[in-house]
Write a protein that binds this DNA or RNA. Structure first.
Lengths: 203, 203
DNA sequence: GTCTATAGAAGGATAGAC
DNA sequence: GTCTATCCTTCTATAGAC
């Protein structure tokens, strides 16, 4: 039955996602994935041939899930400041629900840059840059942003949002010692980050 | 001869550092380390017993190297703005010379938080926080920083400095497509980051 | 499609000669 | 202290029955 097929393949895919997120490509074991999916190893290979192909499927899904979250930056109906507030609120909320994604993606991409290049090859960054710039051209004149510093600015936004999650393994320990709860810290970061960045670009 | 011992142990340690930085704990192979050190596998175990102990030695060295770089933030002779400019200039320069350290540390620490906890257990974060705050108490009144937002502010500084290196695997590809050289981008970031942060905290 | 059993290779670790 | 040879476990992957 196709019902059953779909279910098994999905079960495997979800189990693989869990295990790869926790252990990474190199640390993950096919046996663990099989156990978590409630099936045996042979079935993994029946559906995905090799560990590498299974990982690629999971990696691609996660990478797309992450990059999809950047779509709103091209939204036409928001002012620059609205967009900044919206970004931090939505993006950090997304990471709150998926705290292990940043570490996973950054690590695997450094280990194998080719994998992400293939995925990003269809994205027209030049167009995005231009569109974004044109959308806010008039506003930019009133802020400390121009075509040259736009990439620095964008990466700083992403850094401020993503870094606490990518560094969770260290940060959580430090915050504990200061009597600060990690989740509370992240919750407050949504507003802090927006205020911080908006002040940074105001002339 | 102790001369020779030292040399061999050092050769092993350096080779291990290279391989672990490139492949991570899980991806590294003792055989690769032996090859790179120009000796055989058995000698690795003679000097370091197990892969885990060898990795721990390398990890500890790297973690200390990284955290040592944060010492200047407690320097007494600099104003807040001077300190911020100094931090980005020095820290990004350090990362330019050690671009793979951030990805390595963040990943391994997420995989095994216990390892860094042990190292950080001797650090009195509360004292650092207090000292830092007291050093600039008067200045803070004139800036948008207080005792509550200081951790948010500090992490943002680190994020802006570290993230481009931690995300090098993605960022380099994107910058390439925009016709921007990664090294040039990083060089310009030293000043951009300082300006950005100083504006962000100015009232 | 799913299972058991196992091949085949690779990896960490050790024994023992020198 | 250094080497060769090898053990033993683990892991990916496949063969073959059902």
């Amino acid at each position: 039955m196709p019902e059953n097929n779909k279910l098994t393949e999905e079960k495997i895919f979800e189990a693989a996602t869990d295990v790869f997120l926790e252990k990474g490509m190199d640390g993950a074991r096919m046996q663990d994935i099989a156990n978590k999916a409630g099936i045996n190893k042979a079935l993994l290979h029946y559906y995905f041939r090799t560990k590498d192909k299974l990982f690629s499927a999971v990696f691609e899904m996660i990478a797309k899930k992450i990059f999809r979250k950047f779509a709103p930056i091209l939204d036409d109906s928001l002012t620059l400041e609205e967009k900044i507030r919206f970004f931090f609120k939505e993006h950090i909320s997304f990471l709150q629900q998926n705290p292990s994604l940043p570490g996973f993606l950054l690590n695997e991409v450094n280990r194998n840059p080719a994998r992400i290049r293939k995925l990003l090859s269809s994205v027209d960054f030049e167009m995005i840059w231009l569109k974004l710039y044109n959308q806010h051209k008039d506003e930019f004149d009133k802020y400390n942003i121009n075509m040259e510093t736009l990439p620095q600015f964008m990466i700083s936004m992403v850094a401020i949002s993503v870094f606490p999650f990518a560094a969770k393994g260290i940060l959580q320990g430090i915050l504990d010692r200061l009597g600060i709860d990690f989740n509370q810290y992240i919750e407050e970061r949504k507003e802090f980050a927006a205020d911080f960045v908006i002040r940074a670009i105001k002339k």
